[in-house]
Design a protein around this nucleic acid. Structure first.
Lengths: 229, 229
DNA sequence: GCCGAACCGTACCGTACGGTACGCAAGGAG
DNA sequence: CTCCTTGCGTACCGTACGGTACGGTTCGGC
């Protein structure tokens, strides 16, 4: 077991062997083309050239494998920091546009869509269900929320805060402002893609959509250029 | 088979017996609490006090049953028409607010969420799959899109068109304007709920959210009151 | 050169589900 | 009263999957 830590490559930070990450990669491949039904223990084992026994030793059970897939994939997105100082109106506009485009890019990714479909399909209206009592599993959906969505939310929050500190934006509730920005950027594109709409058809208008969204957002929350700045 | 048409109650318009609709209702109940896994042919038969054989006679197979569930539920939402004539700025604002609140209400409904989860969970990235060749099934997702989303989209389109005709709104592309409106209203609330967030926690802020969304939308697309109207 | 750990490949088991077949009761038509 | 349709209840079959067990192999440590 100690070999795991030493052989851990520089790519991932979680305590997983390169081998195990490779297995997760195979599992993600299966998920992308074939959906949740395609991610069977036997299938993953065959695709990754490993034994089912190893799967169960590493991930506990199938749910553990699915959770690990989400965590693994989430560990890939890295948020780029933006220096808050010296932020011009034009610079803010550009940064927002880049953020918008990145957001659309992430949301329309194959794996992202597959993972979201998986988590959503797994979710059930009535929570609780304390039958066995050992429901320590964080519900996949929650996991995806924490690991994925929250990250990009923070990046946006930082950007918005920088804009306000520079006197370029005016808002009381940062979350509300971010919600508006998100809505303007994404609209119903995410849902449509989750329902099967071909991302390629929508990707063509990403640039225009991002630009329009940012313009609208600045029209709502932007401060007149005549200010002190 | 002809008995179906005569015994069809006044509640539904599709060619289904009241009995069959009752079965679909039971199936929806199962789906809401228990997710897709809970909708087994045996389970539905037991819950609806009918035989599996009848299920297969009426709906073909399990996919047919799921499709019928979507179509059945979609047949419940009715779009209320709004008289385009004599539309004041305040009236438009109120109509938009009502629409926003209705939209959020629909999207946060138990059955709506369950159905969306079902359709999304069923969807798979790689389309095609022409293996057998008899893939005439419209992909659940497409079905939900056509039957549900499109409907509410039309209602919004009519409202927006009325606003423009009354000189209260200014936009070139109606779809784009509707997209903006949708994004402002829904933001990421739908996704969060699909991922398991308790709708009750979000429903409290629906009124405020709807109001803010409409205000923002009018700030973006509204025409100054000094116009000819 | 031997030992043990990790791991692959496969075979195996129990279960649960989709789909089908059969027996039987209710009700309407002649 | 009888026939026939419709549909309920149940038993049944094949399959596929989650999970476990076992034999064989590689590899690092002593």
């Amino acid at each position: 077991m100690q070999t795991a830590r030493e052989s851990a490559g520089a790519t991932e930070r979680v305590g997983l062997t390169d081998r195990q990450n490779a297995v997760l990669e195979s599992a993600l491949n299966l998920l992308v083309e074939g959906g949740e039904k395609a991610v069977t223990t036997a299938g993953v084992a065959r695709a990754a050239n490993c034994s089912k026994e190893s799967l169960y030793k590493w991930f506990g059970d199938r749910d553990g494998l699915l959770s690990a897939m989400i965590s693994y994939q989430a560990g890939k997105v890295r948020t780029v920091e933006v220096d808050a100082a010296a932020l011009t109106a034009d610079g803010l506009h550009r940064h927002l546009a880049v953020f918008a485009h990145d957001l659309l890019d992430v949301l329309s990714g194959d794996v992202s869509l597959a993972l979201n479909r998986l988590a959503i399909g797994q979710t059930v209206g009535k929570t609780n269900r304390g039958g066995t009592g050992r429901s320590d599993a964080p519900t996949l959906g929650r996991l995806l929320e924490e690991r994925g969505r929250r990250q990009i939310g923070r990046r946006a929050a930082i950007l918005l805060e920088a804009g306000r500190r520079a006197g370029l934006l005016a808002f009381d509730d940062a979350d509300e402002a971010y919600g508006t920005l998100y809505g303007l950027i994404v609209t119903d594109a995410h849902l449509r893609m989750l329902l099967g709409e071909d991302p390629k058809a929508l990707k063509k208008e990403f640039a225009g959509r991002a630009e329009r969204a940012v313009t609208s957002f600045l029209a709502l929350y932007g401060v007149e250029a005549t200010a002190d700045a």
